[in-house]
Design a protein around this nucleic acid. Structure first.
Length: 596
RNA sequence: UGGACUAUGGUGUAAUGGUAGCACAACAGGUUUUGGUUCUGUUUGACUGGGUUCGAAUCCCGGUAGUCCAACCA
């Protein structure tokens, strides 16, 4: 198998804006010259291609600039999270080809976070609020209106401390009290209006068990975890821009806390140096047209049976895309082609398909498969004769001189006098631009002989083709002298008695509109519907088409997840459901088609 | 006058005050035992109005359009 070097000219490409920042920070010796990133998924669902973009960034820059990237499970909400997802996330990252430094969990920092929160209370930076969520929401104001202070805002420190302990005792009802940071209820930044640090959940955590009943919120966890872990560049997507100010504030506080309490921070050995702190940077998340990315909505599709689970090949999940037949390299190539900016772009799915064609062209094994068969009988072919023809697996596998490597790169396909060809490769009355098989014309059967179409026979009283009658030129076998003559059309075929019936699953976009997220939202607003009812108008009824075709025997024997090209048709992948007796294939993407 | 962010061919992206380039798509042609691949060529672009400057995609101001922020989610 050839080594595919996809990153050969990466050096020539200009650095994206985050890489430029990192290069500069490193050159200036920020963070004592260290580079550490993290990929922080919440283990509450499967990773999708949007995550792949973040993964390529977080792990990519670490690898590129000699840093390290940890995998950190952002597990601060035990209501939604599960260990099942942790395994799936690890599997998907590894499949994409990345390696993390350490596997860590936000819950690793729960004790530090608790101690830090207590310090915040003691230093007048936090207070326990006992109002209902409705009251608190009302006091929050709106983006155009300042909020008002909670009546508990200036309660004594001792009172807050006592209540905070109660919040974690298991005896307090969820919602009865929260811990808030005392910042500014009139801030134009909504996140500064006394944000919630801790809430009571009263439920066990899948990792920490019954140790905690109160759990920290995202904003009170992320920057602190970055700091405690030694992250230097905390890279996330654009929707977190408004959080950055809060992130910075909490980081400032926790540095102070660490200094005062003598907390030894593993990642930041030089605690007093101003630059020695994590910083958040944001890039544009991936939007793909004709694709819906949100976990919530993907879950609806699965629950309603529109798709078959998270790894349905129509899903934008990494496991779905893998099953569909995209290689990790093609995904990375796609991500590289769309780049990282601060512009909220809507990317064309065609770019992903183009990247896949590029990669799969170099990688895939060529096989013969007929999806919509019609019979050809070669009348002058000796009855009962079978020829074992040798064909190339991958014509893109070439030596230094550019010659196709044949060693270990061939397989055998059987030829006989009765063949299946593709229905659309024959026309009884061809137009000018049609140059495949038609009566009175010569056609080349790829890898075999040149045949001459003599007649077409219909089933009695119908216009349905019974079989197409041909003769063959015995001196025109591929690779022999007689084959070297100009024949306009070349078509693929399988031998009727030497092929395997196969299920071939053809896919199309799940959605009929470019931006399903907005369309669904608009429909919800106009009709007051929710969930699947708001999706149906935009669902493509033909997103899955199952075809019963024939493949050559060698193709049927391939392992699941093998990258194949059905010649002249498209790129296909062996489905995990496949067996040599009952092969199943998924169409990844069609060949580029410049017919007509 | 809530705040923050953004605007370059059809789509995405580059340039870091000095010739607007690349990829995908589209189109035309050559090669080809895949109407694939490959090669050659072509078409198409600065949201808008001002300002600064010898010089602006780039810096500044106004307008327009879009995104994000008012979860005890992350």
């Amino acid at each position: 198998m050839a080594e595919i070097n996809a990153t050969e000219n990466v050096e020539k490409k200009s650095l994206n804006f985050i890489e430029q920042i990192i290069e500069k920070d490193l050159a200036e010796g920020k963070n004592c010259g260290r580079l550490q990133t993290r990929f922080p998924p919440e283990p509450n669902g499967y990773l999708h291609i949007g995550h792949a973009k973040a993964i390529a960034m977080d792990f990519g820059v670490a690898a590129k600039f000699g840093g390290v990237c940890n995998l950190r499970m952002d597990d601060t909400n035990p209501q939604k999270e599960d260990t099942e997802y942790v395994e799936a996330i690890k599997r998907d990252i590894e499949w994409l080809g990345f390696k993390w430094g350490k596997l860590v969990y936000a819950s690793d920092y729960f004790q530090d976070l608790w101690d830090f929160a207590v310090w915040c209370i003691k230093t007048g930076r936090a207070y326990v609020d006992e109002q209902t969520s409705e009251e608190i929401a009302k006091q929050k104001g709106t983006p155009t209106q300042a909020g008002t202070n909670s009546p508990f805002r200036d309660r004594p420190v001792e009172e807050s401390l006592k209540l905070f302990n109660e919040m974690n005792s298991g005896n307090m009802e969820p919602g009865a009290a929260i811990l808030r940071a005392k910042i500014d209820m009139a801030s134009p930044n909504m996140h500064f209006r006394d944000p919630i640090m801790y809430r009571v959940l009263n439920m066990p955590h899948w990792r920490t068990g019954n140790t905690w009943n109160a759990y920290p919120m995202y904003d009170f966890t992320h920057g602190q975890s970055d700091y405690l872990e030694g992250v230097t560049h905390s890279i996330c997507t654009l929707e977190f821009v408004p959080h950055r100010e809060l992130y910075d504030l909490f980081v400032t506080w926790i540095k102070e806390w660490a200094k005062e309490t003598g907390k030894v921070v593993e990642g930041h050995p030089h605690g007093d140096i101003e630059d020695n702190r994590p910083r958040q940077f944001e890039f544009n998340k991936l939007n793909l047209n004709y694709t819906l990315m949100s976990k919530r909505n993907l879950l609806v599709l699965t629950k309603e049976g529109v798709t078959n689970g998270w790894d349905d090949p129509r899903m934008p999940t990494i496991c779905g895309i893998r099953r569909r037949g995209y290689s990790p390299e093609s995904i990375l190539k796609f991500i590289d082609s769309i780049g990282y900016t601060t512009f909220d772009a809507l990317n064309d799915i065609k770019l992903l398909e183009a990247a896949a064609r590029q990669d799969l062209n170099e990688r895939s094994l060529r096989v013969s498969a007929v999806l919509d068969p019609v019979k050809v009988v070669i009348t002058n072919y000796p009855e009962g004769q079978v020829e074992h023809l040798t064909v190339i697996n991958n014509p893109e596998l070439k030596d230094a001189e550019g010659n196709v490597i044949t060693e270990g790169n061939t397989h055998v396909i059987d030829f006989s006098g009765e063949l299946w060809i593709e229905r659309e490769d024959f026309k009884a009355e061809p137009d000018k631009k049609f140059f495949r098989m038609s009566p009175g014309k010569e056609t080349r059967l790829k890898g075999a002989y040149i045949v001459d179409c003599k007649a077409v026979h219909y089933k009695e009283g119908t216009d349905e083709i019974d079989y197409i009658e041909c003769t063959y030129d015995p001196n025109s076998l591929a690779g022999t002298e007689g084959a070297n003559r100009k024949v306009k059309g070349t078509i693929h075929w399988v031998s009727c008695n030497h092929c395997v019936p196969a299920e071939v699953r053809l896919y199309d976009c799940l959605w009929t509109c470019e931006n399903p997220r907005d369309a669904i939202k608009q429909y919800e607003d106009e009709h007051g519907t929710r969930g699947i009812e708001s999706m149906r108008p935009f669902l493509n009824p033909d997103s899955l088409h199952i075809q019963q075709g024939y493949v050559e025997e060698w193709a049927a024997k391939q392992e699941p997840l093998t990258y194949l090209q059905f010649q002249r048709v498209g790129y296909f992948n062996v489905d995990p459901d496949s067996t040599p007796e009952k092969p199943v294939f998924n169409k990844t993407v069609g060949l580029k088609d410049s017919k007509k």
